[in-house]
């Protein structure tokens, strides 16, 4: 490159501009090539096709008695299915939206009032809240209590107290018949 040394007059005028353009163009191509290499490297870390394929789980509700909660595994994480008692439904529906930090009416979260289906993963840092088994602490609102950092959820799985920012998420599900539900 250096030995090409053109006459000095043309270097300062046209030659300088031409070289600037070449540097810019080469730099831009190099930048694009870098992005093109880094992109797939990052993408490899996303969930792979076989992980994505484990999308749905079917649950038979007939064996769940009133007041009982079962825990099923969906996408590697727990889902709570609770057969709510009349009192629990009443408590969930009675809560005024003003006192909720993530306001959502119970009717939206549990279209069939006796069945509450929520993901059993605390929205704070991902622990599994207690309250599904008999004798578990259920927190101050009768739903679930997360032992890790002390979040309290109500009988609609809504956050009422503690560091968690959001309600327990409701997964997409549909009732295939009266006692069979497909989650996912």
């Amino acid at each position: 490159m250096a030995d090409a040394a053109p006459p000095s007059e043309s270097l300062s005028e046209d030659g300088g501009k031409r070289r600037d353009f070449l540097v810019l163009a080469a730099g831009a191509m190099g930048g694009m090539a870098t992005v093109a290499v880094v992109w797939p490297l990052i993408e490899t870390m996303n969930p792979s096709a076989d992980v994505l394929a484990l999308a749905s789980t079917e649950v038979d509700l007939s064996a769940i008695e009133e007041g009982q909660t079962i825990v099923v595994k969906w996408r590697g994480r727990p889902v709570f299915v609770r057969h709510r008692t009349a009192d629990e439904i009443a408590a969930a529906q009675a809560a005024s939206l003003d006192e909720l930090s993530d306001p959502q009416p119970d009717s939206e979260r549990a279209p069939q009032a006796q069945w509450l289906i929520v993901e059993g993963v605390c929205t704070h840092l991902g622990c599994v809240p207690l309250g599904s088994k008999l004798g578990d602490p259920r927190g101050e609102f009768g739903g679930w209590f997360c032992p890790c950092h002390g979040s309290h959820y109500d009988t609609s799985g809504r956050i009422r107290k503690g560091p968690a920012p959001a309600n327990l998420p409701v997964p997409t599900y549909e009732f295939l018949d009266d006692t069979l539900v497909r989650i996912g």
Partner: peptide, 23 residues
């Protein structure tokens, strides 16, 4: 996941799935 907007996407990317698992 506490990062606003992109937190959930980032955490799925870190896990390579929907929870801490084999990947």
């Amino acid at each position: 996941s506490a990062i606003p907007w992109i937190g959930e996407t980032v955490v799925t990317w870190l896990w390579g799935g929907f929870s801490v698992d084999h990947p």
